[in-house]
Design a protein around this nucleic acid. Structure first.
Length: 283
DNA sequence: ATGGGGGCCTGCCGGC
DNA sequence: TGCCGGCAGGCCCCCA
């Protein structure tokens, strides 16, 4: 589902209706998603203010006035749907409840935020804000690709000697946090590196070259409001449009976009995931 | 330690 | 129209 750019887009969409506002009532419609929800989650979320809405990798973190932090993961199909906003004289009414509306936040400003997740691969948890970084799901994550801790020396060190394909290595959240299948495919195309290449076989120059490419791909996707496939929607229900910029993802059998290249985009399966690539441009 | 595969869920799409 | 197989943005867990 949502990779880093989509999660960042969702976070930005939620900011105006959640940050600095109180959750007047949280409604929890099932026991859990991927894992059981923490005890008394609805009560612990009702009546508290959202002091800050942050992102770490593909997780949204809401720091609450109760000194707890709410962790939200969208899994593959999770969406945050917003209603009840007023734009000038236009009021956006709340929609009728939908299948898979698992958690509902009614905000003091009148907005309603609904966590809807058909496949239930998503997750929510609550933890003390003071120890949020040491949460089991967050402590193991590698650096943020758009942050200062992600540089040539780091990535070279992490890939050195690794026998796994570079495709799998870049999907490994412990090496770099936030990339998913789409943006790894697009990154490797731009880098001209075949997805099957062993991570440890890349030259230092090739690894160094990946850094700005990863940053560019992610920044462009955030700028475009993410990518919208079957399940993903921006927080306000609008569609992101980065999917129109895909050069290889989902383009099996179509011509390569590189000038002068007459090859067709191929697809192989690695670790159970589809890798799209140009067999001519990527070596 | 590392790498690969299974499984979790539901929905959608294409083919017959 | 209906059924069935294949596929989907993530990621934990188990096994070799």
């Amino acid at each position: 589902m949502p990779e880093l750019p989509e999660v960042e887009t969702v976070r930005r969409g939620l900011l105006p209706v959640m940050e600095g506002q109180r959750i007047t009532q949280a409604t929890v419609n099932r026991d859990g998603l991927r894992w059981p929800f923490p005890a008394n989650m609805a009560a612990r979320l009702s009546g508290v203010r959202v002091n800050a809405l942050r992102r770490r990798s593909k997780y949204i973190l809401a720091d609450l006035s109760s000194d707890e932090t709410l962790l939200i993961h969208l899994g593959m199909s999770g969406r945050m749907l917003i209603s009840g906003q007023t734009f000038g004289s236009f009021h956006h009414d709340h929609p009728a409840p939908q299948k898979h509306d698992h958690v509902v936040f009614d905000m003091e400003g009148g907005a309603r935020v609904i966590f809807n997740d058909a496949r239930r691969f998503g997750a929510m948890d609550l933890m003390p804000t003071a120890g949020a970084d040491s949460h089991l799901l967050l402590a193991v994550l590698g650096p943020e690709p758009l942050g200062n801790g992600f540089d040539e020396a780091y990535l070279q060190a992490r890939l050195r000697g690794r026998n796994t394909p570079i495709k799998s290595a870049l999907l490994d959240q412990q090496i770099i946090a936030g990339l998913g299948n789409i943006y790894v495919c697009e990154t490797l195309f731009r880098a001209g590196i075949a997805p099957q290449t062993k991570a440890g076989a890349l030259s230092d120059g090739q690894v160094a070259g990946l850094i700005p490419i990863i940053r560019d791909v992610l920044a462009e996707a955030i700028e475009a409001g993410g990518s919208s496939l079957r399940d993903y929607r921006q927080a306000d229900g609008e569609l992101g449009y980065f999917q129109h910029s895909f050069q290889v993802y989902g383009r099996e059998g179509q011509p390569c976009v590189a000038p002068g290249c007459d090859a067709t985009i191929g697809r192989i399966v690695q670790s159970g995931r589809s890798s799209f690539y140009c067999p001519s441009c990527q070596r």
